[in-house]
Amino acid sequence: MINYFAMERQIQQLRESAATMISAASDLKELDNVRVKIFGKKGELTGLLRGISQLSAEERPKIGKIVNEARAQIEQLIADKNAELKAQDLQNKLASEKIDVTLPGRKIHCGHLHPLTLTLNRVKEIFIQMGYTVEEGPEVETDYFNFEALNLPKDHPARDTQDSFYITNEILLRTQTSPVQARTMQKNPPNTPIRMIAPGRVYRRDDYDASHAPMFTQVEGLVIDKGITFADLKGTLDFFCKQFFGESAQIRLRPSFFPFTEPSTEIDVSCPICHGKGDCKVCHGSGWLEILGAGEVHPDVLKMSGYDSNVVSGFAFGVGVERLAMLKYGIDDLRMFFENDIRFLNQF
């Protein structure tokens, strides 16, 4: 005969033994065995419940309440243990999945633009934001556009410095991008304001060495409008150099001679490598590097292309892209640009 108190005691014992078993379970399977042992068809709690029918009507609800409490408590313990063991399992799994994170990542090969293109793109960007158009002209030019329209008649001694590749006596590979100046002026109605740059390949019959190549890249610039001054030239190229080389860049203008400008100047930029200090291989300690030729457009050049120097004035400049790239990236041999070694190209 099962009496109320014995039953109450048994429930209490079950509670205690369940707590011990749950706590002792070392994995999810063991925990499940405990659950079955208590709640299964032949489980201990199930067994106890069968005895309830032998209790009196008053005792049954009381015991029922105790049983439900015990069930809830044990279920909670199992759930808690379950969560704990799952967390443990996950942790073990993660621990077993450890990899060597120092192995290199899977490589993706991206291509690279040529450093001359990157340099030219920067130059274009700076001038386009200042309102310049980008003009182009043929690489095979006439003597007229390459020289004569720029105030360089035949037998002018300044032609000596530009040894040309001739196709015929009147047709040659352009030695400079300056012919685009005359071409642009001539396609405009007279005295139309111009702000342009003309980037492109140019050709000179030089030996191929660390500082010369038979083909290289230039950017020509031309600004024409009413009241354009030499001071505007200086301010524009100072702005360009600061944009290109950084705010600390300084420029220095030296008087020079070009047949197509008057006054003419060569422009040095403060050495971006040593900033004028010490024994620098690039600027030889002078602190200055020649990068640009420029000047106020010669009135004859305007006149030859239908512009009137009494109405408008302008300035022009020319800069070597290789030179800019060499300074920007510290490249000391011009030939690197044209050998196209992928170990070189991959760096940019």
């Binding site: 274009k124 001038f127 386009i128 934001q129 200042m130 309102g131 310049y132 158009t133 980008v134 182009e136 304001p193 702000r195 600004v223 409008d225 009241g227 354009i228 001054t229 030499f230 001071a231 505007d232 200086k234 301010g235 524009t236 100072d238 702005f239 220095r252 203008l253 030296r254 008087p255 100047t265």
Partner: peptide, 19 residues
């Protein structure tokens, strides 16, 4: 001396672009 020439920017503005 070219160093005594002031540095200014051209007056007016134009639209910059490439083809």
């Amino acid at each position: 001396g070219y160093d005594k020439i002031p540095a200014t920017l051209p007056k007016g503005s134009q639209q910059g672009r490439q083809s």
